[in-house]
């Protein structure tokens, strides 16, 4: 059950009671990831909650998004960052980077 929702220009963040649910859409390119990394990491560090990124509407990720996921995992611990509704092409880059273990990907 959603308990709080934060809507910003680049992402929707909902507290589902212990875990953040973050809906992203479109292209997660270098410029955009640089813009969202700091505010997202601040929320994670303040709350010490895990996060699930919903990528159903995401068509592209740059390596900056992998960097964001690495920093998020460092902040909240292995297994506490998840990707859901992930396109096969995006799964492939996480696998090449060896991140399909510490980050759960569905």
């Amino acid at each position: 059950m959603a308990t709080a929702t934060t809507t910003q220009t680049d992402f929707d963040l909902t507290d589902t009671g212990g875990t953040w649910h973050c809906v992203l859409a479109g292209r997660l390119d270098t410029e955009r990831c640089e813009r969202i990394t700091e505010p997202l990491l601040s929320r994670l560090q303040e709350s010490n909650q895990g996060i699930t990124f919903d990528l159903a509407e995401v068509s592209f990720v740059a390596s900056s998004f992998l960097r964001l996921c690495i920093l998020a995992t460092r902040a909240v611990g292995n297994g506490n960052v998840c990707l859901v509704n992930t396109a096969p092409t995006i799964k492939k880059v996480f696998k090449i980077a060896g991140l399909d273990g510490p980050i759960r990907i569905d």
């Binding site: 992998l66 960097r67 690495i70 920093l71 995992t73 460092r74 090449i96 980077a97 510490p102």
Partner: peptide, 15 residues
Amino acid sequence: LPIDQRPIGGLGLFI
């Protein structure tokens, strides 16, 4: 490497 020991850069060109 474990995630907390990884350098942050270098993944883009590698991939």
